[in-house]
Design a protein around this nucleic acid. Structure first.
Lengths: 330, 330
DNA sequence: CAACCAGTGGCAAGGGGTTGCCATCGGTTG
DNA sequence: CAACCGATGGCAACCCCTTGCCACTGGTTG
């Protein structure tokens, strides 16, 4: 089962193992004749170099680990897809870990993988800042949908995005919005709230917050009830899943969307364009976030110097206006 | 950056490297005193054993690769989730590869990973049988949503499931159904058609097939038009994505669902319960498929003997009846 | 007290590949 | 023809960890 090794090839080709190694790794270092013979023998034997053995010496594993805080959220799908594509393009292997919304699992898994990967891309990490900094001292780290001074990151531009949301709602006449917040240790939740509030203030909209809620459909009931109680006419949910749950609960309570209240989500997941009413949501090129994050990681992990400042990328967010937002009821 | 090694620990603890190794791998082999000292020094230094170096000797990488034929299909999400959970439970690392519906990419990626993983779980592999057999000669393989004599597999019970679909449609009075087939090299597509046809025949329903279609929403237009042309009153789409696209196109053409035609999908993806009309679909415990597949893989890859026959698991499928199917129009 | 033994720890080889350094070889140059 | 040179291939050490085997220790047994 364990395939042929460099030794088998060397013997069959009548050369030293070093020659076989070089035929693969430094093609210019051996003569054309020898190289071709070695390669012919290698393919005949079905030889494939072992990445592990290679990594042992070089320390480069050609592997990146992607950690997502909750794999059940379809939003991460896009991130994963983008990350996988970028990794594959550079012949890197992508390891996938689900942190199940648990900082402990996230940390443990990362530590387990430290000796085996070249770096980490962390999607919406739930870890406290100090943990992130500590990890980044062990291996290169790129954050997705989170920012932290000193660490490279790729996010959708939440400030500009939240402003779009508030502008949209204000233009429909809404004067009171409520943010249905995400998990307490979600950086996004804090940032969105800050951005929403400052945009709201600027535009003369009153903004309040309730929560935190785990961003699942099942939490929509509690969020909707709380939101109605707040008296706001515009509900901004932490993400589309929560928004969908909210809409379901509102319907159950005979509150019409968007006639009675407007609902906005985040992420623009696939289902948002299909549910009833279709969901107004802040989307963006999520796969591109995943792609970029891996790209940045590969770049810094292939640089000898770790000197230059961390690149922080903010991709534009796009407000997708659908049927869940409408003119405020007079 | 490359963390401390066993040598650093050995030196700091004043023992030989073999003792450090044993303190981790064979705790009973060293005295309690020594072990505790070693472990203390190790944690202090932040030592973590390198899985690669370990794998080099043992040949066991504690890693499984999961290959999905198309990561953009939300259905695979569930499989991935189940697989990841099961792998994590055994402290295995999960490598994720997207084959992008290309047999060539699938094959190349698998070959690239052969020396680095303990085995493969292949989700809806698009590879021809002979390739699968060849790969399984190199490493243990478990198929998901595909069966092949001699290879272990985990599937939803398509025969029984398709029968449920046809029974449901027949009970609503449908006498003509059309199967909107999936990709040519999809085992599922062939199997579903066979199962649908035989159930249809048995129940006195006329079944035809059109396609193949790539199972994406965007292909729904072509599928819907072809289906209408066939004159069938019941449309069975290869999966939910295609079904959703079909429904959209039907609405565009002012064909009412389910009043004029009924539509059934497969997979019961999240969006199926949200679209309008909600989609009748053949679902099942998909995460469980992923979980089981990894479980079987771990089991056979930890067995010295490769003798016993391949375990082929068929989990029950469940027809989820929603609003897209109704009584046939008289 | 000798013989024996279980419990521990160390030595060194090995697993698959890479690479610095040296030796060889055929060919150039003067 | 001698001196020299670039191209090429081999030797052996090294990456990090595991493990078979041996050596030593202190205690038990007869």
């Amino acid at each position: 089962m364990p395939g042929p090794t460099i030794y088998d090839v060397a013997e069959a080709a009548g050369v030293a193992t070093s020659t076989v190694s070089r035929a693969f790794s430094h093609p210019g270092r051996v003569s054309t004749r020898t190289r071709e013979r070695v390669l012919a023998v290698a393919t005949e034997l079905g030889y494939r170099p072992s990445p592990h053995a290679r990594a042992l010496l070089s320390g480069r594993h050609h592997t990146v680990a992607m950690v997502v805080s909750d794999i059940t959220n379809p939003h991460y799908f896009e991130l994963i897809r983008g990350a996988e594509m970028r990794a594959k393009a550079s012949e890197y292997t992508l390891v996938l870990v689900n942190a199940e919304e648990s900082p402990r699992i996230e940390y443990d898994q990362i530590q387990r993988l430290v000796p085996a990967v070249d770096g980490f891309v962390l999607a919406a990490s739930r870890l406290p800042d100090e943990n992130l900094l500590q990890i980044s001292a062990q291996r290169p780290v790129v954050l997705m949908n989170r920012e932290l001074a000193g660490l490279p990151s790729v996010v959708l531009d939440h400030a500009q995005g939240c402003r779009q949301v508030v502008e949209h709602l204000a233009s429909l006449g809404h004067r009171r919005l409520v943010y249905l917040a995400g998990p307490r240790n979600s950086w996004m939740a804090g940032t969105r709230w800050t951005a929403l509030r400052s945009a709201a203030e600027e535009l003369g909209v009153e903004a309040t917050r309730i929560g935190p809620f785990t961003p699942r459909v099942s939490q929509g009931g509690a969020a909707a009830d709380g939101a109605l109680h707040s008296g706001a006419t515009a509900l901004v949910a932490h993400n589309d899943l929560l928004a969908i749950g909210v809409v379901q609960r509102l319907r159950q309570r005979s509150v019409r969307v968007p006639e009675d209240v407007s609902v906005v989500g985040f992420d623009d997941i696939f289902a948002s364009s299909l549910c009833t009413p279709t969901l107004t949501t802040l989307g963006g090129a999520h796969a591109e976030v995943g792609r970029s994050a891996v790209e940045v990681l590969l770049q810094i992990s292939n640089q000898p110097s770790r000197s230059e400042p961390a690149t922080q990328i903010a991709l534009p967010a796009e407000l997708v206006i659908r049927d869940s937002t409408g003119l405020v009821r007079r």
